[in-house]
Amino acid sequence: MEVLLKVLTVGGTGYIALLAVMFLLQGALIYFPDTGRQILRTPKDVGLDYEVVWLTTEDDVRIEAWFVPAPAPRGVALLAHGNAGNIGYRVDYARLFHRLGFSLLLLEYRGYGRSEGKPSEEGTYADARAAWRHLVMERGFPAERIVLVGESLGGAVVARLAVDQRPAALVLASSFVSVPELAAELYPWLPARRLARYRYDTLEALKRVSCPVLIAHSREDDIVPFHHGERLFAAVKGTKAFLEMDGGHNEGFLFTREVWREELGRFLEQHVPEGTASIGPR
């Protein structure tokens, strides 16, 4: 009996210690900026000119973005990437949107790439707002010509932005319902929902979004299960479309690139007015 009590005591102490570590070090489980500090590719590697833009957020953090212009653009896409790597890993998006007649602003989060600061949930939301202000106030793009695009974690970021603004459309790729929901599936032996200090509640944001929404997800996603995409799609009350992709979480676009381009192009043609965007002084 004494041995059993000791085993239970040691096990209980270890479990409590694990809970404390999970609670305190959640940021290290959500953000992976060190996987892509070095910029390995730029739009020039796919034959496109671009401009490095430095934005200052409302809390005075200096972040980087790349603006890739398209000739006589129909509009502009604002891309918020996933939780690992940097904008250099997303250069193929520039080629994709260029073919569709859209300029592109690739947003780098604070603490990622060459941006200053340290990533946080409220910080990434502020980063997205700074990018929106740049497109509207400095580039002169009207809201009805701006498409918000988010992959994985970035989906939660731009969904939140779409609640406060009125973009032409919102595109979410491989995005999750919320951090607590995903954590509960990844760590079923932990009270993950109660431990979660980060929300990134994409589902709640989508309930309040009024613009057309395209959800893209793969049944083979090995990180964010397919039913997350289904739940997000069901939450959208207005105009919406769903694209089922192939491949794992980080491979979906590689496996369905042509289908992705065709479906995305069709969606944008339906929801972004024809004609060239009226752009301001820059």
Results as ranks from 00 to 15, higher is better:
V259K: 13
A159F: 05
G82E: 09
V3D: 09
Q38M: 11
M137V: 12
H134R: 12
G82Q: 06
K240S: 12
V236S: 03
E244I: 08
I16P: 03
A143R: 12
T239R: 15
E2G: 05
R219Q: 13
V177L: 10
L243P: 00
P71H: 10
R160E: 15
A192V: 01
V179H: 04
N83R: 09
V3T: 13
P43I: 10
R90M: 05
G47R: 02
G27D: 15
L40V: 15
E258V: 14
F242M: 13
Y200G: 09
A235M: 04
A72Y: 06
D49K: 12
G14N: 08
G88R: 09
Y125G: 11
R74T: 15
L135E: 00
E258D: 15
L148W: 10
G248E: 08
L79F: 15
P188D: 08
G229A: 02
G47D: 13
V158Y: 10
E220R: 01
L268R: 00
K118G: 06
R160W: 12
G150M: 03
G36C: 08
T202I: 03
V53P: 00
A277D: 01
V136G: 02
Y31C: 02
E151H: 12
D49I: 07
G12V: 09
P225E: 06
F23M: 09
L25I: 09
E116V: 03
A131Q: 01
D201Y: 08
R133Y: 13
N86G: 07
R199G: 11
V209C: 03
V149Q: 06
P225V: 07
P188L: 02
L182F: 05
